[in-house]
Nucleic acid binder design. Structure first.
Length: 310
DNA sequence: AAATCGGGCAACCGCGCGCAG
DNA sequence: CCTGCGCGCGGTTGCCCGATT
């Protein structure tokens, strides 16, 4: 049952490729093209695994590959796309003619991430390092922040707390949303659906336009700004509380929101419900506990579970 | 001149998914 | 329907080479 083994793994050569091996592989691929990689080593007269041949070809021997240094434009392109989709190197490389995923990955790891760090930008979140540290500190030390004013029975205010809580949570941990990047094994990478953020409550009407449909090409070319901005004044007006949200834009592929302030911060929210000193087994558990509490107190509010976070 | 260190990069490893058998 | 390989991917390793001591 199943296919036969691709190669005799005990009898394949590993390590750096020689010029002779390169020549054999290149000669074979130039006359026969690339098809079934498992048969390539045998037909090309190579004692290599098909996987190794594919890697060597795609990363080094393939025609039209660029071997010169990355240009500033390419650098900027990589940084922008990394901020949007993270370490999806194959997708990033596909948008850079002549570059391989390995090239881009190596360049990022050796140069660009350091460059960003030295500029005070966290290469993982693409936010100022000080900002990230502040968010982490806030979540790690909820007791160091003042408790909010006495709990209100207004569902409007609690809904706002949920909103601001969710937003600060994303800010602090930058939970990468599933932004609908086409799966690498599918051939139809031309379009995808931008999902609605799972944790966040609906945006105030009439700005709501989801479900959001766009094409992958549009996404790469135009960026990922859906124009769903909620100005601070609108939030204040809508909820009548002293919380602000600078924007609600899906920019650079992350849910890029303003930080929160005054009342209704995530930390305050965490500290307010279960009382000081009560500890949960994990941060997520704490969040879920609070969600359950809110659900019992305000059954009209949407409930999230752990799958919403990850 | 030799030893050590560190950066860059090619190649390998292991995983998930799709699909052949 | 099940098994297991092919493929493509991201993460990691290890070698090479130039810089430094």
């Amino acid at each position: 049952m199943g296919r036969p083994p691709c190669c005799d793994k005990a009898n394949v050569k590993k390590g750096p490729w020689t010029a002779d091996e390169d020549a054999k592989l290149l000669a074979y691929t130039s006359t026969h093209g690339i098809g079934n990689w498992t048969s390539v080593p045998q037909k090309a007269g190579l004692k290599r695994c098909g996987k190794s041949c594919r890697l060597r070809y795609t990363n080094y021997l393939r025609p039209n590959l660029k071997h010169e240094n990355f240009t500033p434009e390419e650098e900027e392109h990589i940084v922008t796309l990394h901020a949007m989709i993270g370490s999806r190197w194959s997708i990033i490389a596909n948008s850079l003619p002549g570059r391989t995923d390995n090239d881009v990955k190596n360049y990022w790891n050796t140069k660009l991430s350091k460059k960003l760090s030295q500029s005070g930008i966290d290469p993982v979140t693409h936010r100022p390092i000080s900002d990230v540290m502040l968010s982490i500190h806030r979540l790690s030390h909820p007791q160091s922040l003042p408790l909010p004013s006495s709990p209100s029975s207004s569902s409007t205010i609690n809904a706002t707390k949920t909103t601001t809580f969710n937003r600060e949570l994303k800010n602090a941990f930058l939970i990468k949303p599933n932004i609908g990047v086409p799966h690498h094994n599918t051939s139809s990478a031309s379009s995808f659906t931008m999902p609605t953020p799972p944790l966040l409550p609906p945006l105030p009407p009439p700005a709501q336009t989801s479900p959001l449909e766009t094409t992958w090409t549009d996404f790469l070319v135009d960026g990922c700004d859906f124009g769903e901005n909620v100005a601070s004044s609108e939030v204040k007006k809508e909820n009548n509380v002293a919380a602000t949200c600078e924007s609600w834009t899906i920019g650079h592929g992350w849910y890029d929101c303003g930080m929160l302030y005054e009342e209704g911060s995530c930390s305050n929210f965490l500290a307010s419900g279960s009382g000081e000193g009560e500890e949960s087994s994990s941060f997520v558990d704490a969040i879920l506990d609070h969600d359950k509490e809110m659900a019992s107190e305000f059954p009209q509010l949407p409930i999230c579970d752990s799958s919403d976070f990850f």
